[in-house]
């Protein structure tokens, strides 16, 4: 996820906690993402403390009346905002029982308002079918940030089942905005090879290469090898689209990293190097500029440079190419 996307995502999370549109938080555009997250946590703490007595009484009531009645009151009296915040005080058993009695649409609403610092440990006890129902609603709504937030709290066995419910678009878009990037590797590990192929087909069909590149650059060596195999199976048109997207979104560093993974594989490489060779001259020179600006990246890109045909190798090695020679600068970052 880019810094700009991380900022947009965190601003949306904070806006939801404050009950405002994210545009109303434009005055925080220069704030660090980490600071926005701290503010969100502080506001959630404050809101919990502000109504702790009422929430505690509501939870106590749920323990004294039939659960079906408690679920009805949660839905019709408390609603998703209060219900989501009060859920921080539920026991795991009660959370699982109530969740199973509530409609998927309401649970999806609640999911956008829970504080996962408190509710996260309760998630594992909720039946997979119940989670799946709410997940489908969130997917239909395009709530990628909410969906991705829950990934870290769903046990692997349940997550494996739930991943089957989501199409390639949902996986790419939710993966792109996931807060805990370290979880991406374990999620990819749960996907069979044909689902990985599906992700890259979706990237081509729906112009989601930015999301696919991001996914490929936040995983460990074992899963990276599986992605390498997928990329090496891509038709030329998809490889070309991947590299053009890298150029459009200023993702050359990530794309070069992925390309080197492919080239380092003894069985791979011809497709990706062909894609670099087919880039327009200005695009190839921008790759050269990126390599020249980052010594560590240039070192890592040794296999790319070595495998390049002579004309490409020259452009990748040339210093101060496009900008210094008065050609068009790199296009603005589109985020």
């Amino acid at each position: 996820m880019s810094d700009a996307q991380a900022h947009r995502s965190e601003t949306l999370r904070l806006a939801r906690v404050l009950g405002v549109e994210s545009e109303e938080l434009a005055f925080l555009q220069d704030a660090l993402v980490a600071d926005l997250a701290k503010v969100r946590a502080a506001v959630l703490d404050r809101l919990l403390e502000r109504s702790r007595q009422e929430f505690e009484r509501a939870v106590a009531l749920a323990d004294k009346i039939p659960r079906a009645l408690a679920a009805m009151l949660a839905q019709r009296a408390m609603g998703p905002v209060l219900g989501g915040r009060a859920s921080a005080l539920l026991s795991a058993d009660m959370a699982a029982d109530l969740a199973g009695r509530l409609p998927a649409e309401f649970l999806a609403d609640v999911a956008t308002h829970v504080d996962l610092r408190h509710v996260g440990p309760l998630i594992g006890g909720i039946p997979t079918d119940t989670m799946g129902g709410a997940g489908r609603v969130l997917r239909e709504r395009g709530e990628w940030i909410v969906l991705s937030a829950f990934v870290g709290d769903v046990p692997a066995a349940k997550l494996e089942v739930l991943l089957d419910l989501f199409d390639g678009e949902a996986l790419l878009r939710a993966g792109f905005v996931i807060e805990d990037l370290a979880r991406l590797d374990s999620v990819v590990a749960l996907l069979p090879d044909h689902r990985l192929d599906e992700l890259f087909v979706t990237a081509q069909e729906q112009a989601l290469w930015r999301e696919a590149i991001s996914l490929a650059t936040h995983i460990g060596p074992e899963q990276a090898q599986r992605i390498v195999a997928v990329i090496d199976r891509l038709p030329d048109a998809s490889v070309d689209a991947l590299l053009v997207a890298a150029d459009e979104h200023d993702l050359w560093e990530q794309a070069i990293t992925v390309a080197c993974l492919v080239l380092d594989d003894p069985d791979g490489g011809s497709a990706i190097i062909g894609g670099f060779a087919r880039l327009e001259r200005a695009q190839q020179e921008r790759v050269g500029d990126v390599l020249n600006a980052d010594g560590a990246l240039r070192s890592r890109a040794g296999t790319l440079i070595a495998a390049a045909p002579p004309h490409l190798r020259t452009r990748l090695r040339s210093r101060g190419s496009s900008a210094a020679q008065g050609r068009l600068p790199a296009p603005p970052v589109k985020r």
């Binding site: 906690v17 404050l18 009950g19 405002v20 109303e24 938080l25 506001v43 404050r46 809101l47 502000r50 109504s51 009422e54 509501a58 019709r76 009296a77 408390m78 609603g79 905002v81 209060l82 915040r85």
Partner: peptide
């Protein structure tokens, strides 16, 4: 904005009680 969110929540909690 934080104060308004607090007040909104307090109002909603009171309304939820009556409901």
């Amino acid at each position: 904005l934080v104060g308004q969110a607090e007040q909104r929540q307090a109002d909603e909690a009171e309304a939820a009680l009556q409901t």
